Amino acid sequence: MRRLARLFSALTLLALLAAVAVLIWPRPQPALPPSPPPITALIGPVDHILVEKAARRMTVFRDGTALKTYRIALGFAPQGDKQRQGDGRTPEGRFRIDRRNDSSAYHLSLGLDYPQPTHITRARAGGYSPGGDIFIHGQPNVLFGKAPLRHDWTAGCIAVSNPEIEELWSAVALGTTVEIRP
Rank of each mutant, 00 (worst) to 15 (best):
L4T: 12
A5I: 14
A5F: 13
R6M: 12
L7F: 11
S9T: 15
L11Q: 09
L11G: 11
T12H: 09
L14D: 01
L14I: 13
A15P: 08
V20F: 07
A21E: 08
A21F: 13
V22R: 13
L23S: 04
I24H: 02
I24E: 01
I24P: 01
R27Q: 14
R27W: 12
Q29Y: 12
P30M: 06
A31S: 11
P34F: 06
S35D: 13
P36K: 04
P37G: 09
A41Q: 15
L42P: 00
I43S: 02
V46T: 12
D47F: 06
I49C: 03
I49A: 01
I49H: 00
L50C: 03
E52Y: 05
E52R: 14
A54G: 09
A54L: 13
R56C: 03
M58G: 03
F61V: 03
D63K: 14
G64C: 07
Y70Q: 06
R71S: 15
I72V: 15
I72P: 03
L74G: 09
G75D: 04
F76A: 09
A77N: 14
A77E: 12
P78H: 05
D81M: 04
Q83T: 11
Q83R: 14
Q85S: 11
Q85V: 10
G86S: 08
D87H: 10
G88H: 10
R89W: 03
P91G: 10
E92Y: 04
I97Y: 04
D98A: 04
D98Y: 08
N101A: 10
S103F: 08
S104Q: 00
Y106F: 15
H107V: 06
S109L: 08
G111A: 14
D113P: 00
D113F: 10
Y114W: 09
Y114R: 05
Q116R: 15
T121R: 15
R124S: 04
R124M: 12
A125H: 13
G126L: 15
G126K: 14
G127T: 10
Y128Q: 06
Y128R: 11
S129T: 12
S129P: 02
S129Y: 08
G131A: 03
G131F: 02
D133M: 11
D133Q: 11
I134C: 07
F135V: 09
I136Y: 08
G138Q: 01
Q139G: 11
Q139M: 13
P140I: 06
V142E: 15
V142C: 01
L143I: 01
F144T: 14
F144K: 13
F144C: 00
F144P: 00
G145P: 05
K146F: 02
A147L: 10
L149Y: 03
L149P: 01
W153Q: 07
A155N: 13
A155R: 12
G156Q: 09
G156H: 05
C157L: 09
I158T: 04
I158E: 06
A159Q: 00
V160I: 11
S161N: 04
S161M: 03
E164W: 02
I165W: 02
I165G: 05
E167T: 14
W169L: 02
A173N: 14
T177D: 03
E179C: 00
I180K: 06
R181I: 07
P182N: 13
